[in-house]
Nucleic acid binder design. Structure first.
Lengths: 352, 352
DNA sequence: AGGTACTGTGGGAGCGCTCCCACAGGTGAT
DNA sequence: ATCACCTGTGGGAGCGCTCCCACAGTACCT
């Protein structure tokens, strides 16, 4: 009958109360020390810290989360199947930046895939349960309901790659327009005149911006884009293969291809090879992302580098701020939204 | 004065208590329904489910974790820098298997990198805080203290790639020995006689087993391994480059190379090319992992395929079992340990 | 009739924290 | 001396669950 209350006490992880007893202070004081409150005398602080060390005390996260109504965790939501996550180096760089920026924080990073419908339903439940303090959204399509759901739940969120020019969430992006321009300008300056473009998924805002950059660069040198030279891809290698086949059939005289991703360029390269076109002699090729694939391709691929790691860092930076000064969503208007755009860089190699 | 107790009630997520009131039952009954206990009458269950739906009730995980002393989360610990995680397709396949097996579970998967010392210290804290119910360990080196720490904390764990033949943790592995044998037997049967081996990191048990398989396969055809033909690598591309250079300098007459990973083979290929050796005409090349790199290499690379996704599934399977029948570690002896080994398959391509 | 044994249910106690009120003791102005 | 106002500190109450005891009700034996 008396054993009732001791449930789970078996292993014996020390509690705040025990630390307090050991240090000869009250529970509240230990809590203040643990959480770095300045309202503690130096002597008391030292005593508590000693007790913590002796007992090997580690705060119970669940209890803290329950009492303080926060989780000390943020989620990186990837609305794609795992396959794409690993196939595209983009994600690996984002993770690196995010990890670096998070490393001197108590925040835990969760990686959540939401590619399938089933996974998305789970995610919705997850977010509704407020299991994270904030969300990092990457690679979101224009019609994705996720951002709105986050807004409704009043969960702080930062999106990489805004859904449109009118994105309401705090966003971080690289200069897709400028990146595409620099690629095309590079090809033009190397004497190419029939420059094709294999786009990314056009429901991704960044892909649209790259098309805009492509168009404007050509227009600005007095050679408006030939629509026949634009073919929709989807960022994948297979998409590159399909698009390149279509382009070659339609415009056999093309002498350059600007692909919206390196893997797409890899697909294009394969088709060009099969068609007997030499790179760069017959057709120059430029990719996007400057991934490992670009460096290892034969010939090495000219590509637009995005400062992705830096984007990851910036996203965390903004998210943590947003979590810290969390306030009623009502008080924040469009005027106050934050949109960060980082510059790209063209890395030239043998393919162009 | 009276507002004191209402802290945090602002947003108004419904609680168990509110669901109970709405359904006209007690708190305990709602809890039973939520947790799928069979000891509830059908009528009551229906009433509670209706109330849950109407209120949009989602259980508070922190409260549950605190009360029940479990977290419903497991961690996949990667004791490597992020770079390697993304560079090696091994991890992506493990994740896929793990994710698939976890998808009809309430368990949440956390991905934790512990490449640097700093990250490892954080991880130790993390595990000490019992923030996960179980741990999946991949790519662990022989001298890693992590597994022992887990054992001491009595946290259920499954390791992929046992540290040694005497591994005490539950483990899942592919047949490294058999995989290496099949690669070498293939090369022998295609008339190669001077077969070199670039090993993986030899502090990884699987890498040792591959060397064993290589040695035994040669011995069994009456041609014991020439130690000069064995060069240590580290699973990386740079390691492959270094090792291949050394081998070429030492044994210019080699006519085949078996590399312990596809990326290592890629490094070797590069050196062989530079040295003017044709693949497979002059030197046959076989890799390990059957990754995308193998398929895209020029020429396509013969490689040993491991059922990695299946390994991921199996690991989760074992881990969930272990969590479910968690019992004092004392009661479990060596005799009871589980070691699963899955078969490999040689995928032959143009490089051999 | 009484006993035994189930099934289903309500609700107290407790998980380990944070928050905040209360208050002791010091300091300086009036 | 009195008041106001600091700084540090202790500890009650409460976060939203799960666990388990208690007990009513029913069923089936003796």
């Amino acid at each position: 009958m008396a054993t009732h209350g001791t449930r789970g006490r078996s292993g014996g992880r020390p509690t705040l109360e025990e630390v307090a007893a050991r240090a000869g202070v009250g529970r509240g004081t230990v809590s203040r020390v643990i959480n770095g409150s300045p309202r503690v005398s130096d002597a008391t602080r030292a005593a508590v810290e000693a007790a913590v060390a002796e007992l090997g005390y580690v705060p119970n996260t669940a209890a803290r989360a329950l009492a303080a109504n926060r989780t000390d965790a943020i989620a990186l939501v990837v609305p794609e199947p795992e396959t794409r996550f690993f196939a595209e180096p983009y994600f690996s760089d984002i993770i690196r930046g995010v990890g670096a920026e998070l490393s001197d924080t108590e925040m835990q990073l969760l990686l959540i895939f939401a590619g399938s419908d089933k996974e998305r339903r789970r995610l919705a439940q997850y977010l509704a349960a407020h299991r994270v303090d904030g969300v990092l959204l990457v690679s979101v399509h224009a019609d994705d309901p996720l951002p709105d759901m986050l807004a409704q739940l009043e969960i702080p969120a930062v999106i990489s790659g805004p859904r449109s020019a009118a994105e309401t969430l705090t966003s971080v992006d690289s200069d897709n327009y400028g990146g595409a321009r620099s690629a095309v300008e590079h090809l033009v300056s190397h004497g190419r005149s029939r420059i094709a473009h294999i786009t990314g998924r056009l429901d991704v805002y960044g892909a649209q911006r790259r098309v805009d950059g492509y168009r404007d660069a050509l227009r600005d040198v007095g050679r408006p884009a030939d629509e026949l030279l634009i073919e929709a891809g989807d960022f994948t290698e297979e998409g590159g293969v399909r698009a390149m086949r279509a382009l070659l059939a339609r415009c056999p005289d093309l002498d350059a291809v600007f692909a919206a991703s390196d893997v797409t360029a890899a697909g294009a390269r394969q088709v060009l090879r099969e068609a007997g076109r030499r790179i760069p002699d017959d057709v120059a090729l430029v990719g996007y992302d400057d991934s490992a694939i670009a460096r290892h391709m034969d010939p090495p691929l000219t590509s637009v580098r995005q400062p992705i790691e830096e984007m990851g860092r910036k996203m965390i930076d903004l998210l943590l701020t947003e979590i810290a000064d969390r306030r009623p969503a009502v008080s924040r208007g469009l005027a106050e939204r934050t949109q960060v755009v980082l510059a790209t860089e063209l890395v030239t190699r043998a393919s162009s």
